[in-house]
Amino acid sequence: MELPSMSMAFVAAFCLSSTGGPTWDVSKGRKDGRTSKASETTQLPSPTFNIAQLQQSFSQRGLSLDDLVALSGGHTLGFSHCSSFQSRIRNFNATHDIDPSMHPSFAASLRGVCPKKNRAKNAGATMDPSSTTFDNTYFKLILQKKGLFSSDQSLLSTPKTEDLVTKFASSKATFNKAFVSSMIKMSSITGGQEVRKDCRVVN
């Protein structure tokens, strides 16, 4: 079954309005997708991506490294199931049981939440302790080696992205401004979209 889709920018704007996050004007003639398919989510960046994979994924959509780091800050909201970070806290590789880019105490707390023989379908962790508030805590955690996903922690793996993480961690206002700019840029991405005559249904 295919359903009409809302643009990612609209969804983000709706979520932010309820969490005290930044606001911005959505331009007239905003385009919505004609369909919503589960298969399309495979094109989204994975929580296991390294910085090169993230950069490729974003650049294919016309988004820069600045956009990549700013939009990653959206991880300040929400919750993740254990499956998205399980590989970081057990049997990481032949040398390390735990991902060495993760703070040991953080890994220990996640192992408690996600036991080896986890039977709780909804087990997982919030993206950051203030997961219902849009703030810059996400970036502060990355600097403490407490990013939940390996893709989050990979933002420290290049001088450019590390500099942006540090900048956003030190100033919520700077992060908010960059996030808004990148959201506006992302909302202009086109492809298989239309301006709705009635926003509730496809034309």
Rank of each mutant, 00 (worst) to 15 (best):
W24Y: 12
R61C: 11
Q55L: 06
T166A: 13
D67T: 02
R30F: 13
A38K: 09
L44E: 04
K116D: 03
K37E: 09
F14S: 10
S80Q: 03
G33V: 08
T48V: 03
S18V: 11
S151L: 07
S170Y: 00
K31A: 02
K167A: 05
T126Y: 07
S109M: 12
K146T: 00
K172R: 11
T174H: 08
Q53T: 04
M102H: 14
A70E: 05
K160S: 12
T161Y: 06
H96K: 06
K146S: 04
K37D: 10
N91D: 15
R34P: 01
L16R: 08
Y138M: 02
N176G: 03
F139E: 02
T23A: 09
F106N: 06
G21F: 14
L148M: 05
T190H: 07
V165F: 11
L143C: 04
G124Q: 04
I89Y: 07
K197Q: 14
F10C: 09
H75S: 03
T35W: 08
D163R: 14
D66A: 15
L54R: 01
N203M: 01
N176E: 14
L71K: 12
N176R: 05
A94K: 15
A12L: 14
L65N: 13
S46D: 15
P129Q: 04
Q193H: 06
E162Y: 11
K146F: 01
M183Y: 12
V195C: 02
A178K: 02
L148G: 04
D135I: 01
L3P: 01
S7T: 10
S150F: 12
T41K: 10
Q193T: 12
A38D: 02
I184T: 15
L110G: 03
R200F: 14
V180D: 05
T174S: 15
Q193P: 02
E2H: 07
T132G: 00
K177F: 01
T48S: 07
L143V: 01
M1V: 14
P45E: 13
R61Y: 10
D135F: 00
C199D: 08
K145D: 13
Q55N: 10
T158K: 08
F10L: 10
Q56M: 05
H81K: 15
K37G: 02
